[in-house]
Computed example of a mutant assay.
Amino acid sequence: MLLVYLRSLVRDESAVDDLFQEAMVVAWKRLDECDLDRPFGPWLRGIASRLVLAHYRKQKSLPVVVQEAVLNVVDRHFRNINLLAGDTWDDKVAALRECIDALPEKHKVTIRGKYFEGLSVAGVAERFDVTIEACKKRMQRGRTMLAACLKSKGVLSASEAEL
């Protein structure tokens, strides 16, 4: 949904990709500021809209579509879409947990070791007595399977799954 939002405001596809990545980084850094009992989409779009405005300020042009009143209308339409199931933080975390639980065991323990226990790749490899290269390959395959699962649940779009 964030990519759709950005594409509705910015025509340049490479700028959309950059803005998406930047919005995700900012959101990650500010996650403790997010009220996780409220829908996640409006909070994330708020970050993205400020980044879009900054993007156009750098270019010294502000298209009609990015004027504040237009941003408010676009956001209102997205809010209506967000009333559908699946947009809360809990919905997204539940889908991620389900997808992790569905992974084959060797991929599941590798992903959990790296991302939930904070082990280094070398630490995960040592724990499961595999080479670092084998561990990296398990993580890569596990992430690919996670992306496909999240895509099938509607949590990720096809383009997000490729990132």
Rank of each mutant, 00 (worst) to 15 (best):
L2C: 11
L3P: 03
L3H: 06
V4F: 12
V4Q: 12
R11D: 15
E13I: 00
F20S: 13
V25F: 05
V26A: 15
A27L: 15
W28P: 02
W28H: 08
D32G: 14
D32E: 15
C34V: 11
L36I: 08
R38V: 12
P39A: 11
L44E: 06
L51A: 10
V52A: 09
V52L: 08
H55Q: 11
R57W: 03
K58Y: 01
K60Q: 13
L62G: 11
P63N: 02
V65R: 14
V66P: 05
E68Y: 12
E68F: 12
E68H: 14
F78Q: 00
L83I: 07
L84E: 09
W89H: 09
D90K: 10
V93I: 13
R97D: 05
R97I: 10
A102V: 03
L103I: 05
P104N: 06
E105C: 00
H107G: 00
H107M: 07
H107K: 09
K108I: 02
T110N: 00
R112Y: 00
G113S: 11
K114A: 08
V121M: 13
A122H: 14
G123F: 03
A125M: 06
F128N: 02
F128M: 09
V130L: 00
I132K: 15
I132E: 06
E133A: 11
C135D: 00
K137F: 05
R138F: 03
G142W: 14
G142D: 03
R143C: 08
M145F: 12
M145W: 14
L146K: 04
L146Q: 01
A148R: 12
C149M: 05
K153V: 00
K153I: 02
G154T: 06
A158S: 10
E160W: 09
E160P: 04
E160F: 11
A161F: 13
E162P: 04
E162V: 05
E162H: 04
